[in-house]
Amino acid sequence: MTMKPFLLLATRAEDAAAAAEHSAFLRYGNLTEGELVRHRLERDPLPALDLDEYSGVIVGGSPFNASDADELKSPVQHRVETELSALLDEIIERDFPFLGACYGVATLGVHRGGVVDTTYGEVVGATSITLTAEGRADPILDGVPDHFQAFVGHKEACTVLPADATLLATSATCPVQMFRVGANVYATQFHPELDSDGLLTRIAVYDRHGYYPSGAMEEIAEAARHADVSLAPRVLSNFTRRHRRA
């Protein structure tokens, strides 16, 4: 029986970063090429979608910052935000399977009335994530220990959780690391798809983009090579395993 694919919505304009992200979601989602359909929103507007044709929707990371002033956002970012907001209307109404990684916190957080700003931005690298009681009981976090390492790197984060959201994971430097809306709609601030090789690609592409101090790339790369983030991808594999459907 043929599985309905997952839909990956990407916004990275740099081909190297976009390709590495796609490969990472395939690998850690335990998906074949045909089981993950990618649409690059930064290139093409989102076409009309029939969600019944998909097992779920995944949103990758992004150079966009939802908290930037409107006049600082490009026309492409404005379009992407409008398209994602309209899609989230349907996803929330249907409680359709959704996983937003990093940029997902911003898009879902803003959509549900939370506060996203630069208070809890984190420099690129591994950080220690702690599950809440609700996180320990959540099926998407099955097999994930109470404390684990994951890669982060973001200029903005959710400061005030949406009223209808359940906090699943937190950290000392960023209180909202993962939350859920309804039963099937998730967002993570950390990257469940990133391993050391993936992060090395990212920092090479986004060097001097403000994700870490100027001149710190080699130091961050060396730390990434020795980081153990092997447990974080279980979030992604649990999501795809739970929601794959024919």
Score class of each variant (00 low, 15 high):
Pro5Lys: 13
Leu8Ile: 10
Leu9Ser: 07
Ala10Ile: 11
Ala13His: 06
Ala13Phe: 01
Ala16Trp: 07
Ala19Trp: 03
Ala24Tyr: 12
Ala24Asp: 14
Ala24Leu: 14
Arg27Met: 10
Gly29Cys: 11
Gly29Thr: 09
Leu31Val: 01
Glu35Ser: 08
His39Ser: 10
His39Leu: 15
Leu41Met: 15
Glu42Arg: 01
Glu42Tyr: 04
Glu42Ile: 04
Asp44Leu: 05
Pro47Lys: 03
Leu49Met: 07
Asp52Trp: 04
Tyr54Arg: 03
Ser55Tyr: 00
Gly56Arg: 07
Ile58Val: 08
Val59Ile: 09
Val59Arg: 05
Gly61Phe: 01
Pro63Gly: 02
Asn65Arg: 03
Ala66Trp: 07
Asp70Met: 11
Glu71Ser: 09
Leu72Lys: 09
Lys73Gln: 15
Lys73Thr: 07
Ser74Arg: 06
Pro75Gln: 11
Arg79Pro: 05
Arg79Trp: 02
Val80His: 05
Glu83Lys: 01
Ser85Asn: 14
Ser85Tyr: 08
Leu88Ser: 02
Asp89Val: 01
Phe96Met: 07
Pro97Ile: 11
Pro97Met: 12
Pro97Thr: 13
Phe98Leu: 04
Gly100Phe: 05
Gly104Gln: 13
Gly104Ala: 14
Thr107Ala: 12
Thr107His: 06
Leu108Arg: 01
Arg112Leu: 15
Arg112Asn: 10
Gly113His: 11
Gly113Arg: 08
Gly114Gln: 15
Val116Gly: 04
Thr119Lys: 15
Thr119Met: 12
Tyr120Phe: 15
Gly121Ala: 05
Gly121Pro: 08
Glu122Gln: 15
Val124His: 10
Val124Thr: 15
Gly125Leu: 13
Ala126Tyr: 10
Thr127Tyr: 11
Ile129Tyr: 11
Thr130Ala: 14
Thr130Met: 04
Leu131Trp: 09
Leu131Val: 12
Thr132Arg: 09
Ala137Arg: 15
Ala137Gly: 10
Pro139Gly: 10
Ile140Gly: 07
Leu141Gln: 00
Gly143Val: 09
Pro145Arg: 14
Phe148Val: 13
Gln149Ile: 02
Gln149Ser: 11
Ala150Gln: 02
Val152Glu: 08
Lys155Thr: 01
Glu156Cys: 05
Ala157Glu: 04
Cys158Tyr: 03
Cys158Met: 08
Leu161Cys: 10
Asp164Ala: 12
Ala165Arg: 00
Leu167Asp: 12
Ser171Lys: 07
Ala172Tyr: 06
Thr173Gln: 09
Pro175Phe: 12
Pro175Ala: 13
Pro175Ile: 13
Gln177Cys: 10
Phe179Met: 11
Phe179Leu: 10
Arg180Ser: 02
Val181Lys: 10
Asn184Thr: 01
Asn184Arg: 13
Val185Phe: 08
Tyr186Phe: 15
Thr188Asp: 06
Thr188Lys: 03
Gln189His: 05
His191Met: 11
Pro192Val: 08
Glu193Asp: 13
Glu193Met: 12
Leu194Lys: 06
Asp195Gly: 15
Gly198Ser: 14
Arg202Cys: 05
Arg202Val: 06
Ala204Gln: 00
Ala204Lys: 03
Val205Asp: 10
Val205Glu: 06
Tyr206Ala: 00
Arg208Phe: 02
His209Tyr: 15
Tyr212Leu: 03
Pro213Ala: 12
Met217Gly: 03
Met217Asp: 05
Glu219His: 06
Arg225His: 04
His226Ile: 04
Ala232Glu: 11
Arg234Tyr: 03
Arg234Asp: 00
Val235Lys: 01
Ser237Ala: 12
Asn238His: 13
Phe239Glu: 00
Arg242Glu: 08
His243Phe: 15
Arg245Glu: 06
Ala246Cys: 08
